[in-house]
């Protein structure tokens, strides 16, 4: 980071002004991370005193069927969600970066899902996907098809990915629009003079110059994917408070609060955090390698 240097008395004020945020971060974020790691080494049911078990909670995870199922679901979900969100929001951003009529309106429309309550939107999607009275199946049956059980165990994963991608396009679009506006016009002019088509320009100019934004958005999407909860839960919840497509975060909640196993739930949280951290490091490596030549 190069920027304005801070010296002497100014440094004092910088620290003073940052202190409230730093304290909040230290106690709130780092405090709860430390607590989670600590709890993961105990057997604790919330109500009776915790018992030290070392790494037992971690060693039990490979045999925990609900954890493995949730981990598998989350991995599959992420493998579809991250590339889909990135590519679609990139295309939308490029299209909405053109000089077209009412571009502000279109940008707004794409951004609306980001600021709408997931609960409300989730209910609307439940209705769209409904087997007997759903909008989607009304279309399918009109064309002579058999009604599809969109939220049944075969299709739920795909249906849920679609809703989540739909909900995330707006956020990616904003990031990419920011990145696009930072690309100097003259690069495109030079490419045009060299005879590059619009598509060639997209591949040879836009994508490489956007790589830092793409990596940044990839990190964000991955974090979101591994923490996916709201839409998934609303769309797949079963009568008994379960989910036909349990994700990691849902499983952690259930294990800790419903089954009185805080230590086990904390161990799962730590594993989740390590996975996300690992993927972030990979992205950051890739970014260093390819994203810095702009």
């Amino acid at each position: 980071m190069s920027g304005v240097g801070v010296r002497g008395a100014e440094r004092f004020w910088v620290i003073v002004l940052l202190l409230p945020t730093l304290l909040g971060l230290a106690l709130g974020a780092f405090g709860s991370i430390a607590a989670t790691i600590g709890i993961s080494l105990f057997q604790w049911d919330l109500l009776s005193p915790a018992r030290w078990v070392g790494f037992d909670n971690y060693l039990a995870l490979p045999e925990n069927r609900s954890f493995l199922k949730a981990l598998g679901n989350t991995a599959l979900f992420s493998a579809m969600y991250v590339p889909a969100t990135l590519s679609i929001s990139l295309v939308v951003a490029v299209l909405l970066n053109q000089r077209i009529r009412a571009v502000g309106l279109f940008r707004l429309i794409y951004f609306i899902p980001v600021v709408t309550s997931p609960t409300a939107v989730g209910l609307v999607w439940t209705w769209i996907y409904s087997r007997d009275k759903g909008v989607l199946n009304a279309i399918v049956t009109t064309f002579g098809g058999e009604p599809v059980h969109w939220l049944g165990s075969d299709m739920a994963l795909y249906s849920v990915v679609i809703v989540n991608v739909w909900g995330a396009i707006g956020e990616g679009m904003i990031i990419f629009l920011g990145g696009l506006q930072a690309i100097p016009r003259d690069v495109y002019e030079a490419a045009t003079i060299d005879g590059a088509s619009r598509f060639q320009q997209f591949l040879a100019v836009t994508v490489p110059m956007l790589l830092p934004s793409i990596f940044f958005q990839a990190v964000l999407s991955t974090i979101h994917a591994f923490q996916a909860f709201d839409y998934v839960y609303i769309l797949t919840q079963t009568g008994n408070g379960g989910s036909s497509l349990p994700m990691l975060v849902f499983n952690i909640y259930r294990e800790g609060f419903n089954y009185f196993r805080m230590g086990n739930a904390s161990a799962q949280s730590v594993v989740l955090a390590v996975i996300v951290l690992g993927l972030t490091l990979v992205y950051s490596r890739l970014n260093k390698r390819w994203g810095q030549h702009g």
């Binding site: 165990s153 075969d154 079963t238 009568g239 008994n240 408070g241 379960g242 089954y259």
Partner: peptide, 21 residues
């Protein structure tokens, strides 16, 4: 003891039966 976890283990899978899956 463990009723909630037991009933989830039963109910989660039973739901698939009632759905015909």
């Amino acid at each position: 003891r463990g009723y909630e976890e037991w009933s989830a283990a039963v109910g989660d899978t039973l739901a698939l039966v009632w759905n015909g899956e």
